[in-house]
Structures are given as C-alpha cells and as structure tokens.
Design a binder for these strands. Sequence first.
RNA 1: GCCUUCGUAGCUCAGUCGGUAGAGCAGCUGACUCUUAAUCAGUUGGUCGACGGUUCGAAUCCGCCCGAGGGCACCA
Length: 497
Amino acid sequence: MTRPEETDNSPREDMFLIRRQKAEKIAQGGKSPYGHAVSGLQDCPSVKTAFAALPEGGVLSAKVAGRLTAKRVMGKSLFANIKDQDGFMQLYVQKNVVGDESYDLFKDLDIGDIVCAEGEMFVTRTGEASLRVQSFELLSKALRPLPEKWHGLSDMEQRYRQRYLDLISNDEVRRSFQLRSRIVQEIRNYLSSRGFMEVETPMMQPLAGGAAARPFKTYYNALNCTMYLRIATELYLKRLVVGGYEKVFEIGRNFRNEGMDRRHNPEFTVLELYEAYSDCRGMMALIEDMICHVATSIFGTLTFTRKDGVDINLSRPWRIATYHDLVREKMGADWFDLDPSAMRDKARALGLAIPDAMNALEITHEVYDKTIESTLIQPTFVTRLPAYLVPLAKRCEDNPDLVDVYELEINGQELSPGYSELNDPIEQRARFDQQLIGRGDIEGEVNRVDEDFLTALEHGMPPTGGLGLGIDRLVMLLTGEPSIRDVILFPQMRPQA
RNA sequence: GCCUUCGUAGCUCAGUCGGUAGAGCAGCUGACUCUUAAUCAGUUGGUCGACGGUUCGAAUCCGCCCGAGGGCACCA
C-alpha cells in the first residue's frame, strides 16, 4: 500500500483515506467493495454445532457471513474471526488454497469489513472448530475503524450516540437488547393467549390526558391546530372498552416533557391493559402471574441480582400493604391522628423540605414518596391510596377517601399501577374538576377536561380493571441494568453543537 | 434549572510541582503456513472539548461556553 498523497493528514482522515484507496483498488480489479445479496448462508453457531455432531473425520461444507473482528497474518496463511448476529467463526485462509491474488486481497481486508466465506470445517491443532476458506467475497468495505478489540467501547457518550458501535463491540449490550425484545414478545404471547386484543391508539392528541405530566407540543398544519404527544394511553383504551372490546392492551411509547435521569427517558415504553368486569384484585393477580411467567420462561428463575449484589425475589405471593400501614410503619401508629403541624415537625425531622402550606395529605404523601417508596425492594403491592392522588380510579366501597388501586413497587421503583377503573361519568367529571382546583394551569395545556372521554363514559363503561406496566423498568429489573439508557437503544441525547 | 466529577491519538488510558505530548491496541512497511489480545523488527498519527485570561512559558492555574456521567429538583 502506498501512502495517501492527500494533504489532510489528521489520523482519522488518514485511516479513512487508506481504506478508501483499498476500496478503489478492489473496484479497479473489477470487483465491487459493496456486494449484493448472498444466498445459502448459515449462522456461525449452527455450523459449529452441526460440525461437532459429526463423527470424527466427517466433512461439512459451510457458508457464513459477518463482520471481520480479528486478523492474524502468518506469512502464507492467516486466521481471521468473523462475527455474525449469533456468534463468531474462525476462518483459516491459506495462500495455496485460495490462490495468490485472492490471498493478497484477504490480507488487505480491515477489521470491520463485512465478508462472506465458503469452505470446509476442520479442527485446528488447538482444538478450535474453524472454516478452511476455499472462497470468500468482500460484501462491504468499512471506511472507519472499529473501537479497540480488547477494551471495547466504554465512552458513555459515544456508546449512546453511536449505539451501533456499542452493539458491535460489547456483547453484553447486544444481549441486553435481545432480552428486551424477548421480554416484550413474551408479554404479547401471554396476553394474546388469554384473549387480549392488541390495539393502537393515537400518539398525537388534541389534549394530553390520562396522567399529569407536561406534554410535548407540536403543530398540525392541515388542521391548523396544536397537538400534543400522548402522556398516557388510558383515555383512548377506555373508549374501546365502552365500544365493547372487553380485553384490550397496547404496548407503546409515551412522551413526557420532564427531566431525564437514570430512571427517566422523555419517551418510554408502557403496557396498558383493560379488562371489563374485572377490578383491582383481578389486575394484581394478572400482573403477578404475567411477570412471573416472563421471568421463568425467559430467565428460568424468579431471583434477580442487581449489579450492586442485592437480590430481588419474585416468588409468590407478593406482599400486599396498604398505603396507610406503610406510613404508620415508618412514622408511628399515631401518625394519622396527629394535627398537620405535628406531622410537619416530624417530617422535617427526617430532613424533608415541607412548606408551611402543605396539608396533612400532602405531608403524608411527601413522606411516602421520599422515604418509603425507594425502600420497597422486594415486590410489594401498595393498596388503598388517597383518592386525591388518583382521579381515574374507583373509590373503595368501605372508605370514600381511598381509591381501590394498587401500585406495584419492585426495586424501589413504581413498576405498575392498577385500578378498579372509575366508570361513573358524573363522579369522573367531579374528580376532574376537583383536580383543577388549586393546580396552576401549566401553559393551558395539562388541565383541560377531555369532554369526548366523558361523553364516552356517559354511554356506559362496564366495571373494569386496568393496569399499566413500565416496560423499560421491567427490563432494567430483569437484566440488572441500573440505568434506563442501557435498556433503550437510542436514549435521548442533547443534540451536538 | 442547581450541585458535583469528567473531556488528552481512531479506541482504552498515563501525563508528577506550570517547563518541547506518552503507552498499549488499531493503522502503515517488512518477516512468518495452526494462530486466537498471535509473535518479531521498524514506523505514521495530537487545535490536550471550544473560547478568553494569568504567566517568560498552560494539557496542567482562573473565567466562560459546549458535551457527558452521578446526585438533587421536576415527575397524580
């Protein structure tokens, strides 16, 4: 190879130019450095398995393709590794087998190039099943170098911005996302085998309902109006229950215009499902069974170990604790008998910032939020929440101040909420109105009442159980990844200048 | 938005007290027909995130900006 004559000799361009020249040289030799479809390919692990099953001396021809990840040249023969989606294969290329011209061509290939190779399997002196290459073809010339082979890519920013490099060089990352796909698939299998119908509802909505979060705003030219990216699927799925579909679910993206951190990405994936004639208890049984089913069928276990060594045990039955009992456990049996100022003092003694304006309900919730939720590592259904927190749920029959809901906490995070859904349209309107009182109208966006949804309820919705499940957080739990960015292929990043 | 740590070759990382910018891998040249982080010899490659300041002199100290990690805040 001659040195490039170009004046720009920054190293990146240097390598880029050398590789481009190699590609041009191949093109001049009458071959394309960017090939076409290949038929008859086998994946590397299957070839190795089939070869291992042969009796000694058995002959197996194979054709594999993948990215060149290592090359060890020893004069007139060389070893190389290629990696395909499922595994890798060692290639053995000999000058006297492929011919001088072909051999030099292979010698000139770079780490990162995509090739296919055909030959017969054999076992090397050191016992590795390998492919003795009879012919090969360059399918795609890589003009840029891959990250270092041994340490891989560890720069977080580059891992997220150029996820493809992360996937090429870090096998654990590749595995995590394969597991994510299987988890979602298994949830679909589970639900459809129980008669649930998968549906799709609008992501662009004229008002973002079903939760209280700041929405992303966009503009629809043809209708000359502002639209919002959905923050929840709830109100549309309930319209379908009104419409007579008794078991529906949706797995899709929600968007919330809020901060991002280890547990939050502005777009995140959620399962929501509704089952007519069921309730909160039906939902608890369902979510417990579904998560255990997914865990055992994909991981073969109900015990998961976090990266910091803490075990999470999903064995049934899961703990059920009322919101009030948990607060009493933390703050004393007399907590709910205290007057607000005594509550305030006690909460402040824990280091919480409690403004004077907070009432007893709010102080209690601040205590729960800041000091209790994160301690619920093992699966816990928190039940009977204060009604003011959950305007879309039915009140408990024995106590109108509480709603008949659960919040499933695992690993210190809310993984899944479930409700006995409120199906009384008059009360629903009142609860919406109540919610508006005292809440600042955030840019006029959040607090408008979805009249169309109320109209649907007025047509009659059967008693219904519903639940949501944060898919990203479930995947974090099952794969042990501590950051949501490691279970989302392309996490949100600030655009580069 | 706030606090904090970080940003050095394509990648992984050193860089002492402010005194000419370093290694390994990758690349390039050569040797080598059973290697596997191949080996051996030689060798190219740097706007030290950007800008400004202090200084005889800045990767190093100061300021500001950009980007990332962690924490906080926001998040029915």
